[in-house]
């Protein structure tokens, strides 16, 4: 079964004139990394928000079409239910971390799910190990570098044990070394059978993707990029 299946999704923000998403169809493959490219303002983030229920639960607008999460209609589920299957990591690490220690940060999600303490302890250890940040367990997230903060944001989403992770331009603010570390984590997630959606506008981060889609005029198009010239063509305005 597809982790996410989108059929004919259309969305328009309240004050907007036209649909920002205008007939999106997408079947995500389990255990694969799917990249979604597009120019700024083309609706990439809007699509992410639809996939994880932030639209229509937090942001409102005119939503049409259907999104199925493992076969169940997504917009009928509560956000806290969706959060168990889908995790999302945003661009700005500062607005994702709010706890005084790394350990508290990672425990936050599992605590909300009412897991027992032994289980939480286990998850903290596993997730820290996965992002290779064990030695920062008792540090204040504020004192970490941008890339390290993003790794902690990933760990704290992973602690919810989701099947699908969405990275909404999560690599933009971090340096080359940080990017490599995050990409390595994505590849590891794949081997664990998790699905990854990578929303990007930097072609250098696409090497790890299995499928690539291009979002333009509200529609998704599967593409196959083999050389740089094709890529430049894509972005011609």
């Amino acid at each position: 079964m597809h982790p996410i299946k989108i059929s004919d999704l259309r969305f328009k923000y309240e004050e907007a004139q036209k649909n920002i998403l205008d007939g999106i169809n997408l079947e995500l493959a389990a255990g694969k990394i799917t990249a979604i490219l597009g120019l700024s303002g083309c609706g990439k983030t809007t699509l992410c928000y639809c996939m994880c229920g932030i639209i229509p639960h937090i942001y409102h607008g005119h939503l049409d079409g259907e999104i199925l999460l493992f076969g169940n209609p997504l917009h009928k589920m509560e956000l806290s239910r969706i959060a168990r299957s889908i995790g999302i990591i945003f661009q700005d690490p500062d607005t994702q971390l709010f706890s005084p220690t790394v350990e508290d940060e990672i425990a936050f999600g599992p605590e909300n799910l009412c897991l027992d303490r032994e289980e939480i302890a286990q998850r903290i250890e596993i997730c820290l190990k996965l992002v290779n940040m064990e030695k920062h367990r008792f540090e204040h997230p504020e004192n970490l570098s941008g890339g390290e903060k993003q790794l902690i944001a990933i760990a704290s989403v992973l602690a919810m044990d989701p099947d699908l992770l969405i990275f909404d331009e999560s690599l933009a603010q971090i340096d080359a070394d940080g990017k490599e570390r995050v990409k390595n984590v994505m590849l590891q997630l794949k081997t664990l059978g998790k699905s990854v959606v990578l929303v990007e506008h930097d072609p250098d981060n696409l090497a790890i993707a299995d499928d690539i889609f291009f979002l333009k005029s509200g529609k998704l198009e599967a593409i196959n990029i083999t050389n740089k010239r094709e890529f430049d063509e894509l972005y011609k305005i």
Binding site: H57, I88, R117
Partner: peptide, 14 residues
């Protein structure tokens, strides 16, 4: 909210 804050009336604490 995307980390299930307020999913239940109660929550455990590590």
């Amino acid at each position: 909210e995307m980390r299930a804050f307020r999913a239940y009336r109660k929550r455990t604490s590590f």
